[in-house]
Design a protein around this nucleic acid. Sequence first.
DNA 1: GCCAACGTTGGC
DNA 2: GCCAACGTTGGC
Length: 130
Amino acid sequence: MVKSEPHKYSWQQFLKDGQTFWDGVRNYQARNNLSTMKTDDLALFYHSNEGMEVVGIARVIREAYPDPTTDDARWVAVDLVPHHTLKKSVTLVDIKNEPMLAQIGLIRQGRLSVMPLRAEEFDKIVEMGS
DNA sequence: GCCAACGTTGGC
DNA sequence: GCCAACGTTGGC
């Protein structure tokens, strides 16, 4: 799952662009999670702050490479394309109300901007959004 | 706009 | 290497 503040970079903008590079991660844990993403992996796209909901699914088309927006070699970016827009967004409230999802990173560690999801958690959210 | 959670920085 | 101070994120 990746998070973005909609006023900074929204799902709608992502759809319009057709592709984006996921940069600007400046947190080691988030960076490590980014690094584990492989080509063709799917990632839920979450709007933080405004909306607070999962709005779509993105697909990785390029695995972690050095973040082009900084000279600092520690940081990486990945390239994403939109894969699927959820029929209805899954809100943070929905997720909190689903016992099976109570332990996901989104709840446990709110500040983390990139986090892993187990396959069944991913599937559950997708199911709730369709 | 406030505040809690948490990561990072810097003094010792 | 510890810990206090500070900054940032994100939910409410």
